[in-house]
Structure formats: C-alpha cells, structure tokens
Nucleic acid binder design. Sequence first.
DNA 1: CAGACATTCAACCATTTGGTTGACCATTTA
DNA 2: TAAATGGTCAACCAAATGGTTGAATGTCTG
Lengths: 116, 116
Amino acid sequence: MHMIKLHFMNQRLDHIFSALADPTRRQILMMLLEDDMAVTDVAEPFEMSLAAISKHLGVLCVAGLITQERRGRVKWCKLEPDATQSAWTWMQGFGQFETLDLDGLETYIETILKDN
Amino acid sequence: MHMIKLHFMNQRLDHIFSALADPTRRQILMMLLEDDMAVTDVAEPFEMSLAAISKHLGVLCVAGLITQERRGRVKWCKLEPDATQSAWTWMQGFGQFETLDLDGLETYIETILKDN
DNA sequence: CAGACATTCAACCATTTGGTTGACCATTTA
DNA sequence: TAAATGGTCAACCAAATGGTTGAATGTCTG
C-alpha cells in the first residue's frame, strides 16, 4: 500500500523533473506565468515547428504542470503551479532548507512583519 | 554578457533537473544524505551492474549534486546540497514561494531568532 | 610478486527524446 | 459552401539515455 503510494509519487517526480529538464519547456512555463495562452501564441517566440511545441505542451500536461482546455478551435494552456508541490517537497526532504536563498527569505519575512 | 550568464544558468538547470528525473539517482542522493559512501557501497542495494551505478554517479557529478574524491583505491561520493540552489531558486521564480512549507519556515525563523 | 579488490572504459543494444514534414480534422469566417 | 485558422497525428530521423558485458587500470594485501 505504501509501496504503491511511493511508486506513484516516484513516477510523479520522474515526470515533473524531466519536464523541467528542458529549457524550452521551462520558458513556456515562465510565459504562462503571466497569463493563459493559446498553443499558437505559445509557439510564436520559438524557432521550431508548432508540432514540436504541441509535444512539449503534452509533456507539461502529463507532468501536471499545465492543463489545457479547448474552447472553440483554440486550446488554452493554463499553469498549474501546485503541481510542483511534490518536487518542492522532495527537495526539502533532500535537506535543502538551510541553503534557501536567504536574501529572498529576508525580504519575505520583512513583508510579513510589515503586514502585522 | 547577461545572455551568456543566462545560458550558463540554463545549462546548469538542464543538468540538475535531468539528474533528478531518474529514481535511481534520487535514491542515491537520499542514501548519501546519511553519509559519504564508496561507489561499491552505493551500488549494493541496487539490482543493476556496478558500471551502471558508476554512470549514474557521473551524471550526478556533472550536475554538481555530488563530488567524488579518490583515496587509495576507493572513490568516496559526497553530497553537494548547495548545488540544488539554482533549481530551488528557479522554482521560487516559478511562483512557488507561497506553497513553501510554512511550518518548517516558522521553526526555522524561531531558531534564527533564538540565536540572537 | 601474485592475487584480490575498486572502479572505469569500450563496445554494444533497445528505448526514449526532441525535432522535422505533410496530411488530417475541426472550427470559424468571408 | 469555400477558404482560412488552430491544432494534432503519423511517420520518420538523429541523438541521447540507461542498461549490459568483458577487458583494463590502479591499488591494497598475503
């Protein structure tokens, strides 16, 4: 039972990390950070075929990093940032907490304190 | 100049994420979390050849996630957790900061405050 | 020195990956 | 209805990946 869960989790991590391992796909994610986009628009800044981008989007979908919803003839791509949770958690478990970007942490804490 | 740096960074992320994309390699990293190990000992729990493990260790080395130091006939493998910094930072930039384990963050901050 | 041990190298193999192209399907618009 | 648009599919290709085996290299030990 736990074995199954672990296996599942492992596959999930496989998908997420290998999706993140490609610069094109990372760039796509960054683009989607600003807004949802149609497949053609995602493809526009890249110097490769639409089909190639379509495949990349498929990989991101399988990893759960994005979702796609078809409305009419255009397919909208939407970021699913929560999907990185597993990867994030794994990296924490890898003992990385103390190497967290301390500058970023500092400003973050300051923002919190200001709000109180 | 910035382009070069970005390219460099991008390659680094490629290496790190694709190193993390393999379950065997992730398991190796977890093992090394406990202590430094010789190549043979790393290989022991796995059902694959020593040569295969040797290759995996090579990948982890290139990604900078571990270092290897030869002493006599044995080569010691040592974790380099700081290497995940880039990946960690990238994921932060990907907008994940709010999903960070806030409990862990809290205890972390408390530890800092105690020390002052 | 001879043998055992730790590790890598080299050649090979099957599978996956990242890309191409051209045909195809569905939807919108003139 | 005809043409344009948005996107995928299928077949193909080159290169990378993850594994194997057997030989080779360097180091310790009896």
